[in-house]
């Protein structure tokens, strides 16, 4: 489904998704708002402009599939899926709640549109490789997109999958790295330096794009650029906590959830 939305509309959507996520985190006292806010433009661009997937074609084997491997950012995906009417918006109020509909990490049994259950980091790219290989072997035109965290790329399994994907020329596979420079207990490149990150992926045989992950035009250009019979990786420079000044670039907001006062402050900045 090629959306006809223009960029200002994408920005409006991102704004309302950020507000939904804020309210979910506030109500549930749950963690990981920082990594939700860094990935919102990436996910919104995909769901509103790139992916051939909607509530009506979920049983179509040729649909595009998005895997959110950094599944602790589930709240961002839930808000987008609700916006796209995969499930009712009311589900969002039950996020993380007792007897709720939506858990902290993705569980495909809980709501439509969630393609695979994740929560332990470093699984998504391998599963994506299998899906992309399967589609190729069956001449299925569906494409596979996998969203990874930069910290997640510490996992050896990510690099096993990276080697596999280029070896098997999985040109129907796109990985997006949410390069927000912070992981769970430190700055990404202080824990394990991944720079020069583009060169690493190039040398693993991937077609590499390094862009601003909050800029829809750059995201669209990277997604739409023709595939050279290789898997594609988009290294998306982002800001953890993007959109709320006191959450930006802060390790604390990997964990904290906004209290009433912070909710209001954040709403003022977002609205």
């Amino acid at each position: 489904m090629e959306g006809k939305l223009q960029q200002p509309m994408l920005e409006d959507i991102c704004k309302s998704i950020r507000i939904d996520v804020l309210k979910m985190m506030h109500k549930s006292f749950s963690s990981h708002i920082g990594g939700c806010y860094s990935v919102i433009e990436i996910l919104v661009t995909l769901y509103f402009k790139i992916l051939n997937v909607d509530p009506k074609n979920l049983n179509d084997n040729e649909r595009d599939i998005l895997l959110l491997s950094k599944a602790h950012s589930s709240a961002a995906l839930y808000a987008i899926l609700a916006e796209k009417q995969f499930f009712p918006k009311e589900y969002l109020d039950t996020y993380y709640q007792d007897d709720g509909k939506l858990p902290g990490h993705l569980n495909k049994k809980t709501a439509p549109g969630i393609e695979f259950s994740f929560g332990s980091l470093g699984h998504g790219l391998s599963v994506g490789c299998g899906m992309a290989l399967g589609n190729k072997r069956m001449n299925n035109t569906g494409r596979i997109f996998v969203v990874l965290g930069d910290g997640e790329c510490n996992e050896g399994s990510v690099w096993e999958a990276a080697m596999f994907a280029s070896h098997h020329k999985l040109s129907n596979l796109t990985a997006i790295i949410d390069y927000n420079k912070i992981q769970s207990f430190g700055s990404t490149n202080e824990v394990i330096n991944q720079e020069p990150i583009s060169d690493k992926w190039k040398s693993f045989g991937w077609q590499v794009f390094e862009i601003d992950g909050h800029n829809h035009n750059e995201l669209l250009d990277a997604f739409n650029s023709p595939n050279e019979n290789l898997p594609k990786v988009i290294i998306a420079h982002t800001v953890k906590g993007k959109g709320v000044s006191f959450m930006e670039n802060s390790l604390d907001w990997h964990y904290k959830s906004p209290d009433d006062e912070q909710l209001n402050l954040a709403l003022k900045e977002l609205e």
Binding site: L121, G151, E155, G156, Q183, S184, F185, G186, V191, L251
Partner: peptide
Amino acid sequence: TADMGYSVFETFMDEFPDRFLNTGIAEQN
């Protein structure tokens, strides 16, 4: 620690910086 321990290990890190290491999100390694 494999990237866990926020608000748990700060005191240990400060007291024994040479005997603490965050090895990253890489449990097998």
